[in-house]
Design a protein around this nucleic acid. Structure first.
Lengths: 344, 344
DNA sequence: TTGAAAGCGCTAACAT
DNA sequence: ATGTTAGCGCTTTCAA
């Protein structure tokens, strides 16, 4: 258990490098490098001896040097663009769960995760990230309002997979849910419940939300219902802004008997605001969310929502990314949504 | 050797470097380097011209080269040791929220986050991370079963802050909650409710859980209650294992009228298992958790729990780490817990 | 099988 | 004020 280096007089214990190991082993750094990387030209016994020595000395390859030399980092960048979100925090449970799952997948392939939050994207931000050579590939969580930027970068840089919605003129590889279909499912469910004045809560600047709104409108049209502009409110993905939006809607006096929210977080916030305002859920107002975050099944009443399969989604993203890194051409994947009917 | 990247003839377009900018600007790379870093010796107009040129060319400094040269990365490693946890996933909402908050704090200081999950720690794992020079400092979320390792590393490496409990013989800088006090608060609350047979759910190998158990035992002793070994069950921090443990406890037939769980996740799982088994909460059994995760206030009944102030905790961790990086000597911080009485 | 040497792209000490 | 130069620590020809 002693981690003292017995014959190491100099106290710079944090700065041991390959040439030190080489000197100790009586060989050149080339040999150590080869031994450590399991090169077959180094005889087994010598290889093991060097590996043991390196381990005993607590040596680990300096990854900055290795990356520079190899032009690859063994790191995957996970980017959270917060383009038009009011909050500064990575607080949405959906994002958090996504990050956790991506981290698990990436770690499982012996890569590391560089987590980068981009708050107020400035022109060229993504190019800068690419150019900085800190990662071998990029996973972008959500298009935010950066569709054009993503397209531009995709034209010259390949290892990149984006979580998001299906847009026209989309040249980057995307994984996501069929948002329009999901929203239709949700809205049709509400219509089936006899609801006629269905509010939509979500800020449609985010492409995914825009698509969900599209699905909502299509379902209304199919049922012969006229969309009412005053029933759409631009709730963002943070509790505070969503809360304010819902309260405004309630206080505006506009009548509605159902809510389709662009995310579970917005839906749950809406339920709380409604209950506070003296309306019962699902008695007076039915509510459907989107995502099926862990919270959804635990709130009271349990939230009816459109499920996005995050486990599969995260696995697909990482899978596609590594195939891109290997030089393969891949195409986008959109998963079918699933309506989870609970109590709201 | 077999195939070049198809259709994307950008072998050079992604490889612009500082000397290219220098050539374009008609100066040396030193001048570009100085201009880009805002060095005062470069006259304002020239500086701006070079910066503009670099920007126009989409140039960004190669961080691998910069890190090697500067011996610093501008990256903070966030480590999640999963020593004795059955699950492989970063799924605990507490961890996830912690990661989100740390990421926010670190990003706010213009550093980046390298997220590293360590599943089955092998001897020397932390030393390897330190030696690999991928980050300027380490934030470790939870001691797991790695107290000795942390101590060993702390003796030679400074920029490291650990989230966890207060242990004897602890030489690393720690931020956390006073777990013993928190557990006493919780247990005394249950005793005050008239409960006498209080079960403890948590795997005490994790130091924080051990401390919470200690607080639980102290509160029992103070109330003159004898601790019953059969009322302690080693529930881990994943839903599946916790569920199994709680079911075993119920099926064992041991009588209990209250549960103090080492985490909210375990508490919520316990409530579900109890309800499934036909016992009412808080009618038959009172339940108190630990953490106060977002879910806690939303479950039915809302969970009574011991709140850990994550926002403050994350800020402290990052603050202490940066002070260590700046060369300061800092000491551990333990925050007072707060009992949040809700409906369980 | 092994070593010498070049160089990945950058920064800074040392000229000038 | 700016250029020359010497590395940071590694991997990999190329030569022996």
């Amino acid at each position: 258990m002693s981690n003292e280096l017995p014959d190491n007089g100099s106290a710079n214990s944090g700065r041991i490098k390959m040439s030190d190991i080489a000197r100790l082993a009586g060989v050149s750094t080339s040999t150590v490098s080869r031994a450590l990387s399991g090169h077959k030209s180094i005889p087994q016994p010598l290889r093991e001896q060097i590996v043991a020595l390196a381990h005993a000395q607590g040596y680990a390859i300096n990854q900055a040097a290795r990356s520079l030399r190899l032009q690859q980092t063994h790191v995957i960048g996970v980017i959270v663009p917060l383009g038009h979100e009011a909050g500064q925090l990575i607080s949405d449970p959906f994002f958090l769960e996504m990050i956790g799952r991506l981290a698990d997948e990436i770690t499982g392939r012996d890569y590391e995760v560089l987590l980068k939050k981009v708050v107020a994207p400035r022109p060229g931000w993504l190019e800068q990230i690419v150019q900085s050579h800190k990662s071998d590939g990029l996973l972008v969580i959500g298009q935010s309002d950066q569709h054009e930027t993503l397209n531009a970068v995709a034209s010259t840089y390949r290892p990149m997979v984006v979580w998001g919605g299906a847009l026209d003129d989309q040249h980057y590889c995307t994984v996501g849910t069929d948002n329009i279909a999901g929203a239709q499912l949700a809205t049709e469910h509400l219509i089936g419940l006899g609801r006629r004045r269905i509010a939509f809560l979500g800020a449609p600047e985010a492409p995914e939300v825009g698509l969900r709104r599209e699905g909502y409108l299509r379902a209304l049209a199919k049922a012969g219902l006229k969309p009412q502009p005053e029933l759409s409110a631009a709730a963002h993905f943070t509790v505070e802004t969503a809360q304010a939006t819902v309260r405004d809607l309630i206080e505006s006096g506009v009548a509605f008997d159902a809510v389709f929210a662009a995310s579970d977080l917005i839906a749950i916030t809406a339920i709380q605001a409604l209950v506070e305002a003296g309306r019962s859920v699902p008695g007076d107002v039915s509510v459907v969310g989107f995502d099926d975050i862990a919270l959804a099944r635990h709130v009271a009443p349990a939230l009816t929502t459109v499920r996005q399969d995050l486990a599969t989604g995260a696995r697909s993203m990482v899978d596609l990314l590594f195939r891109q890194i290997a030089g393969e051409d891949v195409s986008s994947v959109f998963m079918p949504p699933q309506l989870i009917i609970r109590g709201s």
